[in-house]
């Protein structure tokens, strides 16, 4: 018994050490954002700033020393990125769940073919289509618009697959009464399935949001208008401009990391569920 206790506290200790080590780069980023330039480059190393000064953070947020190209600002870019991600999450959940409902419940000619058509896109690596997708949006004159950032990422077959899996487990009895009353399929989807969809919606919603929040390659290819810069684009630009001003770069990186981390902390229960579900298919 005693041995077990010792073993347990030993494992606890190692666990905490590993966790602290794993989180250290992020802690270091935040701490460095509070430092002055001399402190960031100081030798010997000063771990903590002499004064916890929010000056760097404030300067980034207010753009007081014009860090960014004309038409762009950090706050603006955060808002645009957030708007793009939020809009895409909502559309993505609604449209993909409709498709999921169709594949889960309806029978129609070509269903098999369409299912394969959808699934196929899941196995095509993005790299194979980036350049020609760019040509498509270029032909449609969509570059440098809100739509080029949102529309191509909305239809998401992994999401269709995942939500369909969930719908298959909803008893058919639930909708039979509604069908007898002559309710349309869309009404059944909207009034019975949508309200039950919260768990898969949260898991997939976070997934999609994080995808949009870290997107970089697609925005770089399609957006040259600074007022539409996505946050990672801006950070990349910023780093190339301010090569050694790490105190600013780390402050900017810290602010840009707040939304995904907060989201993750709020919904961590669902995320853990999602991990389970995606592994044990």
């Amino acid at each position: 018994m005693n041995n077990e206790k010792i073993a347990r506290s030993f494992m606890n200790l190692i666990g905490i050490l590993v966790a602290l080590f794993a989180i250290f780069p992020l802690v270091w980023m935040v701490i460095s954002g509070f430092k002055k330039q001399e402190e960031v480059l100081a030798f010997p190393l000063k771990f903590f700033p002499e004064q916890w000064n929010i000056r760097n953070y404030r300067e980034i947020l207010t753009d007081s020393t014009s860090f960014f190209p004309d038409g762009a600002s950090f706050t603006h870019s955060m808002l645009v990125t957030f708007g793009v991600a939020a809009f895409s999450v909502v559309c993505s959940l609604l449209l993909n769940s409709m498709a999921a409902y169709v594949f889960a419940r309806l029978d129609f000619p070509l269903k098999r073919f369409l299912w394969v058509y959808y699934m196929m896109t899941m196995f095509v690596p993005g790299i194979a289509v980036y350049i020609t997708s760019f040509m498509v949006v270029d032909m449609l004159q969509m570059t440098n618009t809100f739509w080029v950032l949102t529309l191509p990422g909305i239809a998401y077959v992994w999401s269709v697959f995942f939500i369909r899996q969930f719908y298959l487990n909803i008893p058919v009895a639930l909708e039979e009464a509604a069908l007898l009353d002559g309710a349309s399929r869309f009404r059944i989807y909207a009034s019975i399935f949508l309200p039950l969809s919260i768990p898969p919606f949260v898991i997939m919603g976070i997934n999609v949001f994080l995808g949009f929040w870290s997107s970089f390659l697609w925005p770089v290819m399609t957006i040259s208008d600074p007022s539409l810069y996505q946050i990672n684009q801006l950070i990349m630009f910023f780093k190339s401009q301010r090569n050694t001003e790490w105190h600013y770069i780390m402050a900017a990186a810290s602010i840009a990391s707040i939304p995904p981390i907060v989201l993750m902390l709020i919904f961590q229960k669902y995320i853990m569920q999602g991990i389970k579900l995606s592994g044990i298919k």
């Binding site: 590993v18 794993a22 100081a42 030798f43 950070i235 050694t244 790490w246 990391s257």
Partner: peptide
């Protein structure tokens, strides 16, 4: 569990920035 998961939600660009700083020759 919560702590070790956090790095995953950070964007590749931010991760790159943090590690560039960690590796920086001078600071």
């Amino acid at each position: 569990k919560t702590t070790i998961y956090i790095p995953l939600v950070i964007s590749g660009i931010v991760v790159g920035a943090i590690f560039s700083f960690i590796y920086d020759y001078q600071g």
